[in-house]
Design a protein around this nucleic acid. Structure first.
Lengths: 227, 227
DNA sequence: CGGCTACTTGATGATGCTCAAGCGGAGTGG
DNA sequence: CCACTCCGCTTGAGCATCATCAAGTAGCCG
């Protein structure tokens, strides 16, 4: 096992930890690798380990009823997940899937807790992380409560759009995620995403170009989103 | 100032703190009292203080657009709020209103942070609290994403119902909150709450009795909620 | 070229939001 | 003690919207 590749140096949560302590922490993890779409963690898993992503990214999903799925978060290199189950929540309720080839360090619950008590700065940083998560979710709850499905699709598209690098006042989404991904974020079904984009295209607010969406009239789109 | 009334002894977050330290913490708070419906904390407030409720309860709300409001949480005696702004989030985004006569201890951001570093057990307990909040919000996001407005009203009513203390297989909600409160939780408008309850009454699933709702067929109601 | 997946588009029916009108109980002032 | 009023609840009609179903198209990979 190549130790140099198995370092927690890039993990933001641990950036206040001295290098020598970090190495000890690294050695107390189970290192694992996952392929795209592989399930990293499933519901009702009882391990309660905490996972640090040193390379790749994952998506956290929740299932309601039997068929419909909701995307709760996407977590990237340098971040962590599983801390909720480790800290307190009685059981895992979400499923975590690798979005690409991903390397994670799994730390046992007990070891994680003892680390928090040993390094208060880490606790503080974790608190900051969780506070940020809660703020984001507050926003999301408020948005979901107040906006109509169609509007949520507009908002999601606006969230993804970046100014067109080729000058012009346009904004672009590139590459456009698959419709079912957008649907899982916005809490609508797949057809609604297509209908929403179709309507915007008909009204010339945006244009479809292969895998990218070019938004011509961002202001109007924003207005249509009702916020 | 009556010191005996101004004690943080009942605050759960601080239950691992030794009594003498607790007294010092108590003395470093600004103690304040609010009447029903008084605004404890408003958006864009820059104080970043942390508040401990020693008596009473408050509601945390968020406003979207200009008119519609969403209830994010209700916080009771022994709990705390404002920790998100103190720990990290750049600004306050929610409004906090007293639900009854309420006494709070306000602790400055800096003092709070230093306390966390001094008492790692408190950090750990706070982490647990936040983890619990996140889990709850995950559920709420998932529910909001997947269920229709009508169903959310049913679910909210089911959440409030308790078994009828007078025997019988019935469940009761007593007192029934005002419709606009239910609406703010479920993310629907006021009439939809009335329509939903009306429909349930017509189908004899429940019965309206003054300020209380008697649920006869909880199973059917649960089924209608689609979960 | 065939087969698959994702996207597009439309029709339909159910549903929820808006508007509107009436009702009932609690509190107020005479 | 009685009107009066306000606020919250109830109910309904009309209309826009969204989920469902369905069919056809585009693009991709073997």
């Amino acid at each position: 096992m190549n130790i140099s590749k198995h370092s927690l140096a890039k993990v933001k949560l641990l950036s206040d930890v001295a290098p020598e302590s970090l190495e000890e922490l690294s050695n107390n993890c189970r290192w694992r690798e996952f392929k795209t779409d592989e399930v990293v963690l499933d519901r009702n898993n009882v391990s309660r380990e905490v996972y640090f992503i040193t390379d790749g990214s994952v998506r956290v999903m929740n299932f309601i009823g039997k068929d419909r799925e909701v995307t709760l978060a996407e977590i990237k290199k340098g971040a962590h997940f599983g801390e909720l189950a480790a800290i307190g929540s009685p059981e895992r309720t979400a499923r975590v899937v690798a979005l690409e080839k991903t390397i994670v360090a799994a730390m046992s619950r007990d070891y994680f807790i003892s680390m928090l008590l040993k390094f208060p700065e880490v606790s503080l940083r974790l608190l900051r992380d969780l506070a940020y998560v809660i703020s984001s979710m507050n926003e999301r709850v408020a948005t979901l409560s107040v906006t109509a499905p169609r509007q949520r699709v507009y908002l999601e598209l606006l969230r993804l759009a970046v100014p067109d690098p080729r000058g012009r006042g346009d904004w672009v989404i590139e590459p456009l995620p698959k419709h079912d991904e957008l649907a899982a974020w916005a809490g609508v079904d797949v057809e609604e995403v297509a209908h929403a984009i179709g309507k915007l295209a008909r009204e010339k607010v945006l244009e479809r170009q292969n895998r990218t969406l070019v938004i011509h009239d961002r202001a109007k789109m924003h207005e249509m989103s009702g916020m």
